[in-house]
Simulated scan of single mutants.
Amino acid sequence: MTPKAELLLFLASRNLLVEDIKHYLFRGYFVVLDRYVDSSVAYQGFGRGLGKEVVEKLNAFATDGLIPDVTFYIDIDVETALRRKGELNRFEKREFLERVRKGYLLLAEEHPERIVILDGNRTVEEIHRMVVEEIERRWKFDG
Rank of each mutant, 00 (worst) to 15 (best):
A62F: 05
W139G: 07
A5P: 00
G28M: 10
V116L: 08
K4S: 01
A5Q: 10
E109A: 09
D34V: 07
E98F: 00
K85W: 04
R101H: 07
Y104N: 06
D119P: 03
G86R: 10
W139D: 10
T71I: 07
I21A: 09
K22H: 08
V78P: 01
I127T: 11
G51K: 05
L7M: 09
Q44E: 05
K102S: 11
K57E: 04
F10Y: 14
R90F: 13
E98H: 01
V70N: 02
V131M: 13
E134I: 06
E134Q: 14
E113K: 07
I67S: 10
L11Y: 05
R27T: 15
L7V: 04
F26D: 06
R48H: 09
V18M: 04
A108F: 02
F96C: 00
N121L: 13
G86D: 05
G45H: 11
S40R: 01
K57C: 00
V124I: 14
E87I: 14
H111R: 12
L66C: 06
K93F: 01
G120L: 12
D38Y: 06
Y73L: 15
A81Q: 08
D34K: 11
L105C: 05
F91P: 01
E56Y: 03
R138Q: 03
L97R: 06
H23S: 11
V55Y: 02
N59I: 00
R137K: 15
V116R: 12
I74V: 15
R99G: 01
A60Y: 00
V54S: 02
Y73R: 13
E19D: 09
S39W: 01
L105A: 07
D77F: 09
F26M: 08
L8Y: 08
N121C: 14
F26S: 12
G86Y: 10
R129L: 10
A42N: 05
V124W: 15
L82R: 09
P3V: 00
I127D: 08
R101S: 01
H128D: 14
E6F: 04
L88V: 15
L106Y: 10
S40C: 02
V70K: 11
R83G: 06
E56K: 09
E79T: 06
R99P: 00
F30N: 14
S13M: 13
D34T: 12
